[in-house]
Each structure stands twice: as structure tokens, then as C-alpha cells.
Design a protein around this nucleic acid. Structure first.
Lengths: 177, 177
DNA sequence: TTGCAATTTCCTTTATTACTGAAATTTCTG
DNA sequence: CAGAAATTTCAGTAATAAAGGAAATTGCAA
């Protein structure tokens, strides 16, 4: 499968950014490819289009499945797995935030909880204890809020965001007067 | 400088998570150390405490400075640079979001703009064009909203968050009835 | 302006992560 | 159930990133 110039640039860029987003190049490229594809693709097709090893595609798809960014679908009369991703940016965003929370926040939350429960804690200065408590509390609040937001429909979310903007404007105007 | 058990675990954990957060172990460890430290530290002290090469500390501090997570301060009668970080979690959070936006979003925003301006675009299917336009628009909205939020004082932000929670509850209740 | 402390640069080594390709396994079909 | 297609596993290799350490630079102070 030949890629058009625009698609090719999109896929290559997504791949380059992948590293910064916490996934490897191939994972990001596959996701980009599926995102722009009009239909679900087989692993074989992905392999050919991207020019990487079949096994690499297999592992990358597994990672995308673990993020729930990609789903397996079946085509009648074809025993091969076909892969597709949501075309809804909001949906994708939610899944990415969810995945990152799981990988980037959850382990820390647990360690902080552990530290705060630890008998060693009383040896620490009040300052240190306060610092750790505040960190823990902050994570807790942000996690809860983000869960709430992620549960919203796009339209509702837009309303909340506009509201946020309104309040922030208000605050700024009051600050000036 | 000897670390207490709790501080040590905190620093080591922060270091391990660093990789997932897009910085290397040393960078994250230094930040953790400064975060729990009661006073600003010299590069030398950091080197000794963490047991890494002096040059590694130098480079890591430079990276932390580029994130604006760390500041140089001077102590009267001491020519050495001393380093400190904010103790305010909200402040730190803002800086991290700002940094990540710069590194993880901005390059993509530019490429998408480029693609949408490109003469090649008209060769693409309507579907593809729509997909790229929506992506671009989504990034634009989210960036703008996050800028607004980051400008808020912690207390105002809390209000907005509570409001968000209220709306989300409302929506859920209406959905049920 | 020389000398030394402090810091950074830059090249090398080490560690980590990504990727390949062959072999093994699973899954489907006749 | 045998054979082939599809997929995954895994061991080795390549690529990338992190860290170390010597040498160079900076900047202050006598």
C-alpha cells in the first residue's frame, strides 16, 4: 500500500513524536496509519506499508491494544485479524490520558501512600511530612477531577471548558481594577 | 549528606518514574532531592548525595533550568551556585504541563498547520482532510483551554474543578432519569 | 594577571530500548 | 487430524540515550 504525500508526512511525524509521547516509533506510526486509514488493516498490510518487521508490528499492536487505542475487528470470510482505531479525537484523547494516568501516576500514588503509612515517617521533619502529604493530596484531587472530566460527553466538556475560560477572564478583570 | 529512609525512597522512586515522565533518572532524582530539601543545594552537594558524576549533575540541572523547575540562588559569602525548586505542587504542575506542551504538542501543531496549508492536500480524500482538520482543531482548543487554566490561582482553579464535577454529576443524573 | 575554585564541554563507555528474523506456537480449513 | 496460514515468542543485533571522567573554560580574588 502506497501512502499519499500528506499521509506519509503525517505518519512519519507521528512516529518521531512517539518517543516524546512515551511510545516507540513503530507504535506511533501504526496508530497514525490506522487513524488516517479508511478501513481496518491487517498486520501484514501494516508491515508492508511501513516497511518494518512483522514481529515488530505484532508487538506494537499488542501495545496499542493495551492502551485500548486499537481494536481487533473481523471481516466476513477472512480469518486474519484486522485492526482499527477510533476516528474520534476526543475518544483517543481520553484513552491516552487514561493510559498515562495508569503508567505515570498510579505507581507514584502507591509509593506515596506507602511512605505516609510507613513507621519511618515520624523520624522526618514536619516540613518533609507536609511536602509528601501535599503531593499525595494534589495527585488525589487531580486524578479525581480528571476522572470526572473524562466521563463527560464532548459537548458537555466543551461547556465546562468555556465556563473555565469565563471564570478565568473574570478573575483577570477583577485583578486589574 | 545522608538521606533519611523516607527521603531516600522518595528520591529513588522519583528517579525511576522520571523515564516515564520524559526525563532521565538523574534529572528526576535531583528534582526530588531539591523538592524535599529544606534549603538550596550546591551541585557538589547533589553529586555527593546522589553518588553520580559531577558532569551529570551539571547537565541535569541545565535541563531542570530549561523546564524552569529549578532556580539558581546565591548565598552571601559563597561564590557557588545554589539550586532550589518551588515547594508549591501547583506551581510545579503548571511548569511541567507548560514544558510538555512545548515539547510534545507544539511540533505537531506546526506540522499539522503545514499539512493543511500544503498544495498536496487537495489530492487527499475528504475523509483524510477532515481527520487532519479535526485533529488540528482539537489541539488548538485544548491548548487554549489549558493556557487559561494554568493562568488561574490555585483557589480559583479549585472552584472551576468543583464546577466541573457538579456539571458532570448533573449530566449523569439526567442520563439516568 | 596569575592562580585556583567552580563549572561546563566533549568524547568515551555503559545501559537501555527498539527492531529483526528465525523458530515455535496457535488457529483455522479441508 | 494433517497441513497451511497467521501470529507470537525469543534470542541476537542495532540504535539511542544516559552517565562518567578528563580536559577546557569561566570567573572570581588576591
Amino acid at each position: 500500500m502506497e501512502l499519499s504525500p500528506v499521509t506519509q508526512r503525517f505518519v512519519l511525524h507521528w512516529g518521531e513524536m512517539g518517543t516524546r509521547w512515551g511510545v516507540n516509533r513503530t507504535v506511533a506510526q501504526i496508530h497514525a496509519l490506522l487513524y488516517l486509514s479508511e478501513r481496518a488493516l491487517t498486520a501484514e498490510e501494516i508491515t508492508d506499508t511501513l516497511g518494518v518487521a512483522r514481529s515488530n508490528v505484532s508487538n506494537s499492536l499488542k501495545e496499542l491494544l493495551s492502551w485500548r487505542l486499537v481494536k481487533v475487528v473481523h471481516i466476513l470470510g477472512d480469518r486474519r485479524d484486522h485492526f482499527e482505531t477510533s476516528k474520534d479525537v476526543w475518544e483517543l484523547f481520553k484513552l491516552i490520558v487514561e493510559g498515562r494516568k495508569q503508567r505515570e501516576i498510579e505507581p507514584t500514588r502507591e509509593v506515596l501512600k506507602d511512605l505516609l503509612d510507613s513507621p519511618d515517617l515520624k523520624q522526618e521533619s514536619a516540613e518533609t511530612r507536609k511536602r509528601i502529604e501535599e503531593t499525595q493530596q494534589f495527585i488525589s484531587i487531580m486524578t479525581h477531577w480528571s476522572d470526572e472530566m473524562l466521563r463527560l460527553e464532548p459537548e458537555t466538556l466543551m461547556k465546562v471548558m468555556k465556563l473555565g475560560a469565563r471564570i478565568s477572564n473574570l478573575v483577570r478583570r477583577e485583578g486589574k481594577s
